[in-house]
Design a protein around this nucleic acid. Structure first.
Lengths: 194, 194
DNA sequence: CCTGGGCATTGATCCATGATAAGAAAGTTT
DNA sequence: AAACTTTCTTATCATGGATCAATGCCCAGG
């Protein structure tokens, strides 16, 4: 719980006193690589704070293809926000790419923490706004940029993930096939100019 | 201000008393078709509640191409949320597609309304979550669907906009060229099976 | 140490969408 | 209603990325 503690105390500026109170509301869980922890039709009862490891959220369309919406490594929160907030069935899968350790955060936790601490409420608000900003950038990129540009942007944004995530998943995140990504990389290797 | 009043009183459930208080904080403005009301580098000081008419937000990339992020007709709020919330320079344009009438909502309005009314705070929260949900669907669609599918989805989602928005703007929203959209429509006309 | 299953690469081919250009339609201005 | 201007369509050609198939690679498990 080291990371989660830091998150609460430092980022969300929760006082020692409140911390003791809140920490009781969450549980830690080990998730083996490959384990699915949320699937379509289920309601997303928890947000998953990644203490250690790597999660992903994704959809599978009617023709069986996966499309990755988000990766979450240490200190990130992965969830189907809509499902959790509106208490409606999810359309997403969430599973573990690596053996992971996650902190389960229920809706009640968020509410209570927001009640208790103005800072937490504020921080939560910021997280939402960041999410929106991030999604907007991604939409804009998908609208305007080539596979190569999108890949370069990904490298910039998530340099650490490049080595941890299999290439075909990165392709899925970018909205291209693994074959295409392989070719893009080959091209990029030729003209090395940074 | 009819729509905005209704929005505050009905949707955000603001009491008559608070309404009188809050309404003083906003101004109404007429925006002529084509007028740009936000451009990159500027900070988005206001969110624009569309009382009447039609706005759009979009980016222009280095090669001069527009990419539309959002349309907003009556009762929608258009803004660069990130810029407004974080008080940082925007990367978006916002302009009017039709002669419009908008209510200018400053950050102070949001704050004050949230202080005054729990309902408003809650409603604002819901709006944020809806925004995230909507963006997520769009990302998923961009990752997975063909031009035709995306267009059909657009029709479903915004049937009213089809007639109000020029076709090339819809193409821009979908991330394809106007020519492609024209082709897609032609194809769809052939096989009419609704 | 072999073996089998996931992953990455490569080549061949196909296809949806882009680019360009030109005209037809529709809308606006004078 | 004539003269523009903007939007939409159509046609041709070019291309990025998809699909299909084969091969090699790695490494985890027997």
């Amino acid at each position: 719980m080291k990371n989660f503690t830091k998150y609460l105390k430092t980022k969300a500026q929760v006082s020692e006193e409140n911390f003791e109170l809140l920490i009781k509301k969450v549980t830690v869980k080990k998730i083996a690589k490959g384990t699915v922890i949320l699937r379509p039709e289920e309601v997303c009862k928890f947000s998953f704070f990644v203490e250690k490891g790597l999660l992903r959220s994704y959809t599978i369309n009617t023709s069986g293809k996966e499309h990755i919406l988000q990766f979450g490594s240490e200190n990130w929160i992965v969830a189907d926000r809509s499902s959790a907030f509106f208490n409606e069935p999810s359309e997403l899968f969430i599973d573990a790419i690596e053996d992971s350790e996650v902190v389960l955060i229920g809706a009640d936790f968020i509410e209570q923490a927001s009640e208790i601490s103005q800072y937490f409420r504020k921080y939560n608000q910021i997280a939402l706004q960041n999410h929106i900003r991030h999604q907007q950038k991604r939409i804009n990129l998908l609208l305007s940029a080539s596979a190569e540009t999108r890949y370069m942007n990904f490298i910039q944004l998530y340099p650490d993930l490049i080595s941890r995530v299999p290439q075909w998943m990165i392709a899925s995140y970018l909205g291209i096939t693994p074959e295409s990504l392989s070719r893009v990389r080959k091209e990029m290797a030729k003209k090395p100019l940074k």
